[in-house]
Design a protein around this nucleic acid. Structure first.
Lengths: 219, 219
DNA sequence: CAAAGATTGGAATTGACTTTCCAACTTCGT
DNA sequence: ACGAAGTTGGAAAGTCAATTCCAATCTTTG
């Protein structure tokens, strides 16, 4: 109902300039909401950053809730596509380590500010905006699926035992990433993140070793 | 400097009634900030919940930042003391599982609302309030220390190998708890939390088994 | 008990933010 | 080129939060 009324009010950009304006607003809002939180980001803030007037924001997004929803969608899709090449090949211990380390380097670069783009939004909005929560759940599900499918491939290949719960392992890695980033954010030091993901990946590596061992025993 | 000016303005309760009022405000603020976030909690909100007038809040806490700082301190201390009996005996796999499951039951009870009291504050404030970040880092450090000292005792006892990095294991467990709670909050289901902590504790259990095995080999 | 200090109520100030509105300006299809 | 639709600027309304202030009422203490 709310969604409907907003959607009715919103106009999709139909001209080239309009599309670029919309994009500019979205990017500015995403950056600001990431840095200062949703509540800490005002419409005037977005106006300044995107160099647009208030009417443009309301024209394209209806209201702040609509803008927030668009940012959630944006962060989910963009971040995912951005890592697609890596995400599609998370089917070895080395690939997992490489992928997690990539994120660690990014943390170092920004001095651990912000944590995870989606995680921050999730923590802030889950309890107060049901539709945002849903969007964020979808976003997380996509990451989980990427990890899980890599692990599933390892299992099919025999790197992992047939009885391994790849869902649990994927969730554990995702949780380590999120929790690790939070701890790193608070400590302004990427070490906690690195430790957390390393422990979980080590655990997966142990299971791989166990699978290998049991294979050689079978013969 | 900011801290000083605030502290100057704040009066410590010196009468019994004053102490109870202060406590009532603190508890109300803690609950509200946990449920709706710091930004989502207004002074009038706290007034209504604690049944006090604005002047009482400003009298005892100086300003909203001071109130927030007090809430951080409160959550850190209270939650810790509340679990002291369990925290002091995290020196076995069973104790770790029991402790984490205790939290899972609480998550079930509240339908996963709010996540972790400290984690939520951390995510919201780390990047925008340096002194809050510091307080939260201290809070987390206490939890980490509790886990770590339990693991260290296991190591001294020989349950864990002498070369185990108990710091890394403690951080990993803490991250699993935080990340797991976040995922559970978003999914409104404690399963992700349970999976994440189970995987990490299973990993620790594996190390215990490895230590036992190597001990029997030595003989 | 009386002065000093602590506590409280409630009004008033100030400022910011969300959202609406409308007039002006562009772009597009025909 | 012309009307319709898309886009933009900026003012303005309405709301609400943070904070200050002061007068009134308790408490403590000498």
């Amino acid at each position: 109902m709310q969604t409907r009324s907003v959607e009715t009010r919103v106009k999709a950009a139909s001209t080239e300039g309009g599309r670029r304006t919309r994009e500019r607003i979205l990017k500015a809002a995403a950056e600001l909401m990431f840095q200062q939180g949703v509540a800490g980001t005002s419409i005037p803030d977005v106006q300044r950053r995107a160099r647009v007037s208030a009417s443009q924001i309301y024209h394209y997004f209806g209201d702040k809730k609509g803008l927030t929803a668009a940012v959630i969608e944006y962060q989910s899709t963009v971040k995912l596509e951005q890592q697609r090449p890596l995400l599609d090949h998370l089917d070895s211990i080395e690939a997992l380590r490489e992928w997690c380390e990539r994120a660690a380097v990014r943390l170092d670069a920004v001095h651990c500010a912000g944590g995870c783009e989606i995680g921050s939004l999730a923590s802030e909005l889950s309890d107060i905006d049901p539709s945002a929560r849903l969007g964020l759940a979808t976003g997380f599900a996509a990451w989980q699926a990427a990890i899980e499918s890599g692990l599933a491939r390892m299992r099919e290949r025999g790197d992992l035992g047939a009885d391994e719960d790849v869902t649990a392992l994927a969730v554990a890695l995702l949780a380590a990433i999120q929790g690790g980033m939070l701890l790193s954010q608070v400590n302004q030091d990427a070490t906690p993140y690195r430790r957390a993901v390393t422990v979980v990946i080590d655990h997966i590596a142990d299971r791989v070793a166990a699978a290998r061992a049991s294979r050689s025993t079978d013969r």
